[in-house]
Design a protein around this nucleic acid. Structure first.
Ligand SMILES: [Mn+2]
Ligand SMILES: [Mn+2]
Ligand SMILES: [Zn+2]
Ligand SMILES: [Zn+2]
Lengths: 139, 139
DNA sequence: TGTGAACTTGCGAATTATTCGCAATTAGTC
DNA sequence: GACTAATTGCGAATAATTCGCAAGTTCACA
């Protein structure tokens, strides 16, 4: 995982920390910097949280990882090559569900046509109420 | 602005701070707690930031204000009675554009039908690249 | 194989955003 | 007016993220 040339190819130096951060992002899904740090510590206990933050930023700059917002703040990271999908976040129970990007296709196209706005579907979260919580509301 | 009974009706006590916070949310648009505090200070210089936070939470609980996320974190508040609209946030220049909710109608309906997910269109921000930045990219 | 410049890391401190605890102050009720 | 519960201000506590800097590493190249 995280072959050397993936990083060098993009002009990045290859350090154990950087490789491990990238590997962790790929293994975990929608992971926060803190969760990524924890994962990396299984192999490299000494890694500092600020190193994780710096590497996430660097890796995002060269397009190897991306972040999105699932909760009311903070960022979660995922591998860039991962299949893009929508996040349906329930504001009541906090659950995060997935949906294929195609669901948003006509919406995305409408924004492009009407405003010339190119939507990054994988970055935005869709907030609302999940079906479970909707039903519970009927009480 | 912020007539007494609006608050009492909902079981809230009427304090100058609370009235002013609500008034500020209505005058400003997409305001952060800090911006709201500043606005309130024009009339009531002594207000504490934590009072603003507490009142925003209280007002949101009774449905008078709502929050949404425009940037990469933090929350912005707006009056609940305000016409709901989408926020198109450009990740390149940071601009926040508006679009009518209708644009998302078929998308929202699809989520309801496929997942029973009731989308809160006014809460989610749509990330992407605005037309200006898209064009600038062609260089 | 060295060497050195540029890049990274660890560490602790600084920021920023938000929340808490608590005593003093008010608002609403009777 | 008197009482009770809600609210405020204040300062401290958290949490999340960023910075500065000295020490350690990586990589290019001699
Ligand atoms: Mn939110
Ligand atoms: Mn973001
Ligand atoms: Zn739910
Ligand atoms: Zn832009």
């Amino acid at each position: 995982m995280a072959k050397p040339h993936e990083l060098r190819e993009r002009g990045l130096r290859l350090t154990p920390q950087r490789e491990l951060v990238l590997a962790a992002v790929r293994e975990l899904d929608h992971a926060t910097p803190e969760e990524i740090a924890e994962k990396v510590r299984q192999t490299h206990p000494g890694i500092n949280l600020s190193t994780v933050y710096r590497n996430l930023e660097t890796l995002e700059n060269v397009g190897l990882v991306q972040h999105s917002h699932l909760g009311h703040g903070g960022a979660s990271y995922h591998a860039a090559e991962e299949l893009a999908h929508l996040h349906l976040v329930c504001g009541t129970c906090g659950n995060v569900g997935d949906a294929p990007i195609e669901t948003a296709l006509s919406f995305v196209n409408a924004l492009t046509e009407d405003y010339g706005f190119r939507t990054d579907v994988s970055h935005f979260s869709v907030f609302g109420t999940c079906s479970t919580c909707s039903q519970a509301e009927l009480s």
